[in-house]
Design a protein around this nucleic acid. Sequence first.
DNA 1: CGGAAGATTGAAGAAACTCAATTTGTGTGG
DNA 2: CCACACAAATTGAGTTTCTTCAATCTTCCG
Lengths: 243, 243
Amino acid sequence: MSVTSFEANLKHRCSSCSLREICLPLGLDAEEMTKLDDLVKRRRRVFSGQSLFRAGDPLQALAAVRTGFFKIYEVSVSGQEQITGFPMSGELMGLDAISTGTHRGNAVALEDSEVCEIPFTRLEGLLSDLPRLQHQFHKLLSGAITTDHTLVMILGTMTAEFKVAAFLLNLSDRRGQRGEDPSEILLPMSREEIGNYLGLKLETVSRMFSKLRDQNLIETEGRKTFIRNRKALKALCQQGSVT
Amino acid sequence: MSVTSFEANLKHRCSSCSLREICLPLGLDAEEMTKLDDLVKRRRRVFSGQSLFRAGDPLQALAAVRTGFFKIYEVSVSGQEQITGFPMSGELMGLDAISTGTHRGNAVALEDSEVCEIPFTRLEGLLSDLPRLQHQFHKLLSGAITTDHTLVMILGTMTAEFKVAAFLLNLSDRRGQRGEDPSEILLPMSREEIGNYLGLKLETVSRMFSKLRDQNLIETEGRKTFIRNRKALKALCQQGSVT
DNA sequence: CGGAAGATTGAAGAAACTCAATTTGTGTGG
DNA sequence: CCACACAAATTGAGTTTCTTCAATCTTCCG
């Protein structure tokens, strides 16, 4: 092994990864983390617009986002597309493929990104030996269900304005969890993609951005969006609904 | 142990349960199933309208529906309710609570029901010893994500008519999986509950039932709903969408 | 700097919602 | 077993929200 690849290896182990408190290694001790490390193929690059996996692909490996942003979308029998999530750093992709062994979703990078790949069969083997890893894995699976329920709640009960507000707050919160400035959001997805995710047309999304801007709740500057009045934005989401 | 309880025990083990091909024991051999059996508290009755667990309750046990029907609903900070699922026999409830250890959902029986309770901590212990059970558990967790994505797809892309059609077909398919007549659906939930689940008002649901009836796709008789033209109903779902 | 893609805004239309009246279904007590 | 009362479901009419279609403006790359 060359010096450079050795250094690269050191630099890119779970133990030194800034996302270890969000990702699969959470709660593991040094020895356990090493075992997990041995499984992980790190730093696969996926350039903006490229696919990491497609619907119909067999599940080989789960993928954790290291850097960047993805969208996951599914296509119904009628050809309708629905974005089911925008995974960012530390979040796992492909969990829904375990049930059938085949991906239903399509994962596309929204910006140049890097992922860590975790071969699923080998991971399951390791889980039996490492109860803490097993539990964390279950928490992540369960957390994916919770995330989906939140989206169902948004889709089922909210008006367009509140949907967009909730969307921005969600991205903001996730930035905060990663130690980034929660009031400055760089949106890597288009209005159309936001609309698709929220069950709205792109024009409606655009109008709601304008509406929130007119209320001085947010500010926009190209793809950057600033949250100017977090409190009021939150109050908006908590107040408003259709049903 | 008395004779009666011994008999009851025999009668209500996973190995003789008609749902074992849907539920947690799928794929286990006899010995493995016995170990799982030892964990399960069977036949807890939950009468119509009663809660099995509520949001805020600590997760003690997962629950598999043995007989009957439940609704799971979550309440947002704004007080909005959203039904996230209608679990029926063989389906697990409480998986979303693993991530935090606390239930977010409320489980209410829609008719007199019975559940098998599986203490979660003990189950996780057993998973390490039984790789096949572990895998099946992961499949069920993953399947819950898939189910949620299907709902997201329905909420995000479908019109009222197609939502209701998709809802009826889903219930019908699940009856079929259980060996029951898929064209005769006994709806234990109200129009309001269906509407809440689908992001519609109860009046809209009622109108769509009437519309489907006028097209001779379904027939209704009290709470019973018959699927009269399954093919056309399916074609409807596959054709139609908003976005 | 020019062209294309994305975003914004306006006006008109459609889908679903609200409010209200009526009908049907369900469960209970006489 | 029937009658009554209450809850659920249906249907209609008018309103709101979001969508559709179209024009313009902005941003981003080559």
